[in-house]
Amino acid sequence: MSILSVKNVNKRFAGLQALDEVNIEVEAGIVHAIIGPNGAGKSTLLNCFVGRLMPDTGSVTFNGISLLGKSPHEINQAGVSRVFQTPEIFGDLNLLENVMIPTFARRDGAFKINAWSAVSDENDIEAQALSSLEDVGLIDSARVTASQLSRGDKRRLELAMCLVQQPKLLLLDEPTAGMARADTNNTIDLLKTIAEKDITMIIIEHDMHVVFSLAERISVLAQGTVIVEGLPDEIKGHPKVQEAYLGGAKL
């Protein structure tokens, strides 16, 4: 059964067809990778899933409900969390607060005036946030201001912020970009343990090592169109992919 269904999506930016009749079905519970050269339209596609962009035509349905025209917070409350290509975190707040906020959002919904209770009494929320920080290996920096983190750590923080919400669908836009090899491997391991839970992941990634370690299905996007889709083994040696991706060089 597919959890996310993308049908005939088009998006045009002043003279540039960024997405051209994109069709993708994402099966529930798997890791689905979207790969493709720079500028292929991968981030644009994710933007159409989370309410940042509205496709010109086509449909995006999640668990049977249309995501088009919904605002970002509604889509998140429906169970979709996203890690951005450039980390989006609360730079002025510490790591613990960064993760507590999505935890509150999950418990209290999109809006609740909770002005008379103290954050320091929210032991449950704090415990969940700390455990999420522990999962991504940032527990020792819980009281550090988030803007001071390295780019790789910011990305892991963002991942913790998404994971604490226990989303049904997790969107990852290049989650290992800017990470050293050892960190990348840690992240792969982390994502593998997450994938075992009841969670669907869409991962956009440049690093083929990451893609082939994780993906159960791969769509290849080039110039806004899905040129091939299949199992990792089918993609690996596919001539069209090599042509689009590396201009003929071997993957």
């Binding site: 989370v50 605002s71 970002p72 917070h73 998140n76 409350q77 969390s81 996203r82 951005f84 989006e88 975190i89 609360f90 730079g91 002025d92 707040l93 607060e97 507590m100 906020i101 999505p102 509150f104 959002a105 999950r106 209290d108 919904g109 999109a110 609740k112 005036i113 909770n114 002005a115 008379w116 209770s117 103290a118 954050v119 929210e122 912020m161 919400q165």
Partner: peptide
């Protein structure tokens, strides 16, 4: 309060807060 924390999150990164639900 949690309310105050949300307000500070708005100042820090309102965009992120929307994508956080």
């Amino acid at each position: 309060s949690p309310f105050g924390m949300m307000l500070r999150a708005i100042k820090s990164n309102q965009n992120r807060l929307s994508y956080t639900g």
